[in-house]
């Protein structure tokens, strides 16, 4: 896999993107979870991404919203960013042993990629969001989706700067 600097990874997360394959209007339910997906590209079409949205059917507080980068010129994919509900314990970055059952964010890190680990290994607790809808709004803003309002009209108006 090509070498990515932390700046490259951060830029891939935040660069402006457009939804090119929109999500379903309603989440589908299959195999015990509600799901939706969409595909994004950068404004010039040079980079392709996939976003997944999942909510566990039995424990709805266990949700997951993620951004995956699909490099065009090499195999594999990179999990750039994932917002999670308080599904259980996770390894906290830079902490030898910790026990957290809180909302948290996984973010791709150069050290992980260089070490051959999952790019998003380790997470940080967050108080930015406390439920799925709030997480989705903040996620769409963080990953720079410029036409989110066209496809997520039921989210609180005005959050996408339009």
């Amino acid at each position: 896999m090509a070498s990515y600097s932390q700046n490259d990874l951060d830029r891939l997360i935040s660069c402006p993107k457009r939804i090119v394959t929109p999500p379903h209007k309603m989440m589908r339910t299959e195999k015990g979870h509600h799901r939706n997906d969409m595909e994004l590209t950068t404004e010039d079409g040079s980079h392709v991404f996939r976003v997944f949205m999942r909510i566990n059917e039995r424990l709805p507080e266990n949700f997951s919203i993620g951004l995956i980068y699909l490099p065009k010129d090499e195999r594999g994919e990179i999990h750039l960013l994932r917002y999670n509900g308080p599904h259980g314990e996770f390894v906290r970055l830079g902490v030898a042993e910790s026990h957290h059952v809180v909302h948290h964010v996984h973010r791709a890190r150069k050290e992980n990629l260089d070490a051959g680990k999952s790019a998003e290994k380790g997470a940080e607790p967050t108080e930015q969001f406390s439920d799925y809808n709030e997480a989705l709004r903040i996620f769409l803003a963080e990953v720079g989706v410029t036409n989110a309002g066209e496809h997520f009209a039921d989210l609180e108006p005005g959050l996408f700067g339009s």
């Binding site: 195999k31 015990g32 997944f52 059917e57 039995r58 424990l59 995956i68 994932r82």
Partner: peptide
């Protein structure tokens, strides 16, 4: 697993 394993798998791989 209350459905969590297949939910996690579905991030990148569908059955």
């Amino acid at each position: 697993d209350l459905g969590m394993t297949l939910m996690r798998l579905s991030y990148t791989f569908d059955i």
